[in-house]
Amino acid sequence: MLPLILFFIFAALCVGGAINLLVQKHPINSALSLIVVMGSLALIYLLLGAEFVAAVQVIVYAGAVMVLFVFVIMLLNAGVEERTEHASRVAMVLGVPGLIIGLSLAVWVVSHLAGLDRIAIGGPMVMNGSDVFGNPQAIGHLLFRNFLLPFEVTSVLILIAIMGAVVLARREE
């Protein structure tokens, strides 16, 4: 019961933060709303029993990535955004309900296909028999045993991206 109540609190916080992100006119307020979204997502992961993913979500997204966003906004001293004048009437009326229906359908189909609807709020969860997933040991086993090749390939990809960023930043005219 308690996990369910907490889930609704954090889910509401998450959706509220996301809406606030779109509504706010100043970029720094939008960035801060995005941090609230990231934080409440982390708490939902925690409720699902995925404590490692929750901690990484806070450290990487709420901590590192969003600090860089805020940093850039501060450096550029970005002002209040300007709205375009002629917005489409149809998009304004039907946009949000249409998006909600489309996304819910997609989530429903994907979760049925992947068998994710067996996951319930209030972990720790059991998947494929008895091994608990979500704690650091289980994730380590998955990453370094079952998915070692994709993991290493991804790290090479990220390395290439870092080097590309350095090359682009240092390109002299």
């Binding site: 801060l32 941090i35 934080g39 806070v58 450290i59 901590g63 590192a64 600090v67 940093f71 501060m74």
Partner: peptide, 11 residues
């Protein structure tokens, strides 16, 4: 994680 969020206070 908490330390990395603490940066926002200063920034």
């Amino acid at each position: 994680g908490v330390t990395s969020v603490g940066v926002y206070g200063v920034a």
